[in-house]
Design a binder for these strands. Structure first.
Length: 380
DNA sequence: GAGGAGT
DNA sequence: ACTCCTCAACGCCAT
DNA sequence: ATGGCG
């Protein structure tokens, strides 16, 4: 996920005040609707909207260039849908231009995937990455529900300095979140009832885009082997983006500091053992041609995109848990997207087939400062 | 996206 | 009734 | 102290 207020290619920003300028010419050809819109705004003495608003108008213009101007009042119903008993506004709004996905497609996905997704959300604080103006617009990361309630959503008060954390424990809550353009769902690595004792360690393997996918598969297997040597069973999911997540379930016990220290030791061991393959340093220049092992998800208040969460990036990748023996057949971190995820869900529905993470809730293991020390001192 | 203030 | 404005995170690490 | 990062 990115910073909450990323301003990418913003069309025709106008300085506050009287003088306004024609938008710089974009590198891509500008659709006619957009040209007309910006030209009109510049020519007539019309107040020029703020960038976010401009994007919204542009998007609307692109989607429905031929909407009759005199639409009868109250006929917004044409773009209002219903999913699982929840009113979905702007249902036909396109949220991802690349795939042509509409808001209603997103909401319906979350309704369909709920049986698999909800167990990963249940009882955990959840943070949302919302994109009310679509993937091209402003993205909002939301950890608390202070101002506004979302129907069905559970509130965990006083777990985070008195700011109510978000809990999604029902289909109803999930669909209301999707109605609010909640696209990514990030869960804490601890249960709300035991929020100071993490119950998993997560390693986010984030490759330099230049690297081939085989390198990422190899890196994941190295990580699995290292953890296995420490007596820890690990699980793998596609990140829906470029890389993979390695997840190690824990019996709660060690606190956040010990858990983070362990995760850091693992990341640094990978980086020192295979220096051409891994880095544990976040800065961009250290990452060239490497796979960044992001161990900093293992901090109180941080989160990781949940299994079956959509990612708010063009193409709308999905996080998908897989079995280790499936890894070699994957083609990338975004192997599954909103466009092809149904194939996977159908597989999961086959009664005889073992769930890829069947053992996840059965594993009984934990970490300790002793184990971390052993790792740091170079022991096996 | 939603709520509140302002017109 | 409508438009406009505002709001919706945070901790860690490298430098 | 600041900036970038996720």
């Amino acid at each position: 996920m990115q910073d909450a207020h990323s301003t990418d290619t913003s069309p025709g920003r106008t300085p506050t005040g009287a003088s306004r300028q024609v938008p710089e010419s974009p590198s891509q050809p500008v659709p006619e609707a957009l040209q007309a819109l910006t030209l009109d705004a510049a020519a007539a003495d019309v107040p020029v909207p703020r960038p976010a608003r401009a994007k919204r108008q542009v998007q609307e213009a692109l989607q429905a260039p031929q909407v009759p101007p005199a639409r009868p009042r109250n006929s917004r119903a044409s773009t209002t849908g219903e999913v699982a008993g929840v009113r979905i506004t702007s249902a036909r709004r396109i949220i991802d231009v690349e795939s042509g996905t509409r808001k209603l497609d997103l909401v319906r996905y979350y309704a369909r995937v709920a049986p698999w997704l909800l167990p990963h959300l249940r009882d955990r604080p959840v943070a949302l990455l919302r994109a009310p103006q679509g993937l091209g617009g402003e993205r909002v990361f939301q950890r608390h529900l202070t101002r506004m309630a979302i129907p069905g959503v559970t509130l965990h008060d006083e777990l985070d300095g008195g700011h109510p954390l978000i809990g999604i424990d029902s289909l109803d809550a999930l669909i209301h979140v999707a109605q609010m353009d909640g696209i990514e769902l990030h869960t804490w690595s601890a249960r709300a009832a035991n929020v100071d004792l993490p119950d998993r360690v997560v390693f986010d393997l984030d490759p330099d885009p230049a690297l081939g996918w085989e390198r990422v598969i190899e890196a994941a297997q190295l990580t699995r082997t290292l953890l296995g040597d420490l007596g820890l069973e690990a699980f793998c999911q596609t990140s829906g983006n470029k890389g993979l997540h390695i997840v190690v379930p824990l019996v709660p016990g060690p606190g956040w500091d010990d858990t983070k220290a362990f995760a850091r030791a693992v990341a640094q061991r990978l980086a020192s053992g295979w220096p051409t393959q891994f880095t544990a340093i976040q800065n961009a220049d250290h990452r060239k041609k490497k796979i960044y092992v992001d161990y900093l998800r293992n901090v109180r208040g941080a989160g990781t995109a949940a299994a079956y969460s959509v990612r708010a990036r063009p193409g709308l990748g999905v996080c998908v848990p897989i079995a280790w023996d499936e890894l070699a057949q994957t083609t990338g971190g975004a192997h599954w997207t909103l466009a092809n995820i149904d194939v996977r869900l159908k597989q999961l529905n086959r009664p005889k087939r073992a769930a890829p993470w069947a053992r996840f809730t059965e594993v009984r293991q934990t970490v300790s400062s002793e184990l971390t020390l052993r790792l740091e001192e170079g022991g096996a």
